[in-house]
Nucleic acid binder design. Structure first.
Lengths: 150, 150
DNA sequence: GTAAGAATGAGAACGAGTCTCACTATAGAA
DNA sequence: TTCTATAGTGAGACTCGTTCTCATTCTTAC
């Protein structure tokens, strides 16, 4: 999705949810679209300090509810945000470092994703769940942490 | 794994980590082994109120470090704990309700798990990650929440 | 323009989780 | 068994990521 399309789509999703696409929200979408991995609130504010912290939290929640961004939760203490997959045309998963909490993106062959979806759908039906999506994280130690101490 | 084996294994893992298997820790393992889904700290304390909250947090951290329990993080505000898979002989994944945060267990055919592991190992190698494990959650809406409001 | 509603931002408030510290229990030595 | 060093306990203080408040500043529709 190109930069212009991105904002059109984000605006449309917000409008559908009764929300405006304000300049603060546009800044958040821009920052996230410029990263190849999910960012913490602190990282977002470091990049664009004109946004107040309270506004960042509030607007990321609004953007999440509208399906524009996605909140990524890891075992460390910070939440991370990324653009929703529908806005990036890029279904992917996360490599999460068990030591420093860093998150990187990766993806898998499409055929495998399809089988995965089918298996998950079966399991969901058995349990009475209505499937909304899945989350597949690979947990390990990133190159930095391995270099740092074995 | 039977009840007795469970405690023997838990004690061994703690000993290997230089820790004792105290009565508080045994209570925590018992509570978790009696549940078919991960429990929050509050749920654990509700079941066995003789354990102080601070001790529960401290000991669950000790048990996690020793590989006896596993901390499950979802999008809601509470961490959840379950017995480590090696103590239950039961590799499984989680169904997470996007509305109330409830977590249930499910598992997938073994052959499929093997292919999944192989795919993940490939991705990890490409990114320079040392694989430790994976986390596969199905996100959806549980039966309760669907019944409650469509 | 102007009014009604929404967004903003600085800072207060909240709360899950962690830390402190005086006290208690335990394991090994004598 | 008694001693003693070390580990565990629990009540409550504290931390800090996140959420809430509220006075002010935009927007949007008329």
């Amino acid at each position: 999705m190109t930069g212009a399309d991105l904002h059109v789509t984000a605006a449309a999703r917000l409008r559908a949810d009764g929300q405006r696409y304000t300049s603060n929200r546009k800044v958040l979408v821009e920052v996230l679209s410029g990263s190849d991995r999910p960012l913490t609130i602190h990282e977002i504010l470091d990049r664009r300090s004109e946004v107040a912290q309270s506004s960042a939290y509030r607007n990321l929640a609004v953007l999440e509810r509208a399906g524009v961004v996605h909140r990524v939760v890891t075992h460390d203490e910070f939440a991370r945000y990324e653009l929703a997959e529908e806005l990036t045309d890029h279904h992917h998963h996360h490599l999460v470092c068990s030591e420093c909490g860093a998150v990187a993106d990766f993806s898998m062959p499409e055929g495998f994703e399809e089988r995965l979806d089918a298996e998950l759908e079966k399991a969901a039906r058995r349990a009475g769940f209505a499937t909304e999506g899945h989350r597949l994280d690979l947990v390990g130690r990133c190159r930095n942490c391995r270099d740092a101490r074995g």
